[in-house]
Design a protein around this nucleic acid. Structure first.
Lengths: 172, 172
DNA sequence: GTCTATAGTGCGATAGAC
DNA sequence: GTCTATCGCACTATAGAC
């Protein structure tokens, strides 16, 4: 992160990263499948925040309500103290198309996982996939707003507002 | 496409592609920013199909209705004759994570462009971005269903059904 | 069109942890 | 004694500079 922030992602070689970390290039690639992956690894607990409230919900809970709970829970990953760090990381990603691609890819994986969890609850198609897509989409848009300049509201609050806006949009 | 289908995307070198096309490697990269791009270039008319019906709609048309018209129009890009080709292309993309990433990236660009068009009509935020996200998301899921084994319905029909399912999901 | 830097892979050797 | 982390080295393809 320090190297990327100072000189840019593209301008930083894997050799530099490895040296800074006191390792060899070969070892870097043992831990990370590619150079971009170093910015996205270790998001397992983040994923779990989406899933836990779904697992904990009563069996009859409607998909929409599950998504709302999932979003509220995911907000815990982004307390106010994390905002500065998230902004710095987002700036690095925003500066490089290759990193934006990887971010979209990670969000797509989250969608797939969420869809699975919903289907395991007996929610059918296309509802399960649609609910997963909506949940992750609202999360993503909310996150972008959360790190916007001057924004002070919490992630959970923004997400709730965005989900309501989506509902309003669809029911015009 | 032929080379990718026969031996896989990763196993096909740019040198091979260039030679097959009767060009040099350097010329390939002059036309395409990177190797993956060759599978995604020239989608401008596709993009326009989303935008045209929005431009043509009466000023007071609600965002949801705009999206519905956009989806109906985009369906024209996928007549039944195109289905076999789309399946073959999708199979190539599905076999390679790097290509799936690029596809998501292209869809994200489409979202951005659609959002712009909606804002130019005076639709505010977050409605414009949400509508664009919903439109492209429904398109993407519908496309995946359209190329699913045994599926015979038209793109427009599937998209309409998916959009209705989304509405039902959110309004329960 | 030529040249070169860098990402990423395959295989093997070594050292330490349990 | 097996398992895992690191390293060394040779090699190829992409991609960019000039």
């Amino acid at each position: 992160m320090r190297l990327f922030a100072d000189q840019g992602f593209e301008q930083t070689t894997v050799a530099e990263i490895a040296e800074t970390a006191g390792l060899t290039e070969r070892t870097f690639f043992r831990h990370f499948g590619d150079k971009r992956e170093v910015l996205f690894a270790g998001q397992d607990d983040f994923l779990q925040l989406f899933i836990d409230p779904i697992d904990a919900a009563p069996a009859a809970t409607a998909p929409y309500e599950l998504i709302a709970r999932s979003l509220a829970s995911a907000g815990d990953f982004f307390p106010n103290e994390r905002r500065a760090y998230s902004r710095a990381r987002a700036a690095i990603i925003a500066a490089e198309a290759a990193l934006q691609e990887r971010e979209l890819s990670k969000l797509a994986m989250l969608k797939l996982r969420l869809g699975e969890v919903l289907r395991e609850r007996g929610i059918g198609e296309p509802a399960a996939t649609l609910a997963a897509e909506i949940g992750v989409m609202v999360f993503h848009l909310s996150f972008q707003q959360w790190i916007a300049a001057g924004e002070r509201r919490s992630m959970a609050q923004i997400a709730q507002e965005r989900l309501a806006a989506l509902t309003a949009l669809v029911t015009q």
